[in-house]
């Protein structure tokens, strides 16, 4: 293990207490965990000032492994707990890790409203297109016609595009990455953490155990190849790279999809406090 990797692992993981982790061999969650701690380290934010919040599902277990202030809450509600933490103590940097079902099915309401309010939180959504922990049932991002344990005859629902949902709901920063493009992922998470406002990183990940098994992608390597071959990296501010073609348009865009400046909730609420105190003294 290179020296700097060993140092990051020692600094950020509860390595002596909580490993080995519960994830399947080859799961993308481990890659996200690695990317997250590298991004936190590069962001320069002090450990004591970070709260990592997660919900329920395979992704929810990430909080156990990281030596930060960590909170593992009810299914879908992580953003509401995070909202309370942030408003009660604005000095804290609150990062929320969710899965696709956690963030956009049971927690969909909280997700769009946190984005609408532009709450100063970072939402990292690991999108493996399935409910892994409960045995591979279909989620809001399961592709049409896929087989899952609750769509044995093929999935008939349309999918959410999590990034587009976040953009439309009013997030300040939206990026998409994959567990194959780890350098891009490190950058996206670091930028999201440093962004003032509601920042979202959607990470396409693999669940070969459940999704892959029923849909011709039995190994993590097959999933990695798929990610390599089916994405196009966008340039800054959501523009497609030069040489845009019909081919890239069909590909999934990864990179920073939205990055705008707008007032964050806590700053706006400080105005409310000032106004209230002025009205009291006058």
């Amino acid at each position: 293990m290179p020296q700097e990797v060993a140092e990051i692992v020692r600094k950020y993981l509860r390595h002596d207490k909580k490993f080995p982790h519960i994830w399947c061999a080859g799961c993308g969650n481990g890659i996200v965990l690695g990317s997250l701690i590298r991004a936190i380290d590069l962001s320069g934010v002090e450990k004591d000032n970070i709260v990592l919040v997660s919900g329920i599902g395979c992704s929810g277990r990430i909080t156990v492994y990281v030596d930060l202030n960590t909170l593992h809450v009810t299914h879908g509600r992580a953003l509401s707990f995070a909202t309370g933490i942030k408003l009660a103590k604005d000095s804290l940097k609150v990062i929320v890790v969710m899965g696709d079902g956690d963030a956009t099915a049971i927690g969909g309401n909280h997700f769009i409203h946190a984005a609408r309010r532009n709450m100063d939180l970072t939402a990292i959504i690991i999108n493996n297109q399935i409910y892994g922990m409960t045995g591979g049932q279909y989620s809001p991002t399961t592709p049409y016609d896929s087989k899952t344990t609750t769509s044995p005859y093929g999935h008939i629902e349309n999918t959410f595009s999590i990034s587009e949902l976040a953009i439309a709901a009013g997030a300040s920063f939206v990026a998409r990455g994959t567990v194959y493009h780890t350098q891009l992922l490190d950058d996206a998470i670091r930028l999201a953490i440093l962004k003032k406002g509601f920042s979202v990183v959607e990470i396409l990940s693999n669940c070969h155990t459940h999704y892959g098994k029923l849909n011709g992608m039995e190994t993590p390597v097959a999933a990695m190849r798929w990610f390599r071959d089916h994405v196009a990296v966008v340039g800054k501010e959501g523009a497609l790279p030069p040489g845009r073609s019909a081919e890239t348009d069909e590909k999934i865009r990864i990179g920073v999809l939205k990055n705008v400046e707008k007032p964050v909730y806590s700053e706006e609420y400080q105005k409310v406090r000032d106004h209230a105190k002025n009205s009291l003294s006058s």
Partner: peptide, 18 residues
């Protein structure tokens, strides 16, 4: 908040922040 579920979640979050 957007509903009472979120209200209760935010209350717990704030309490955890002291």
């Amino acid at each position: 908040m957007e509903d009472e579920i979120a209200g209760m979640g935010a209350v717990i979050g704030a309490s955890l922040a002291g």
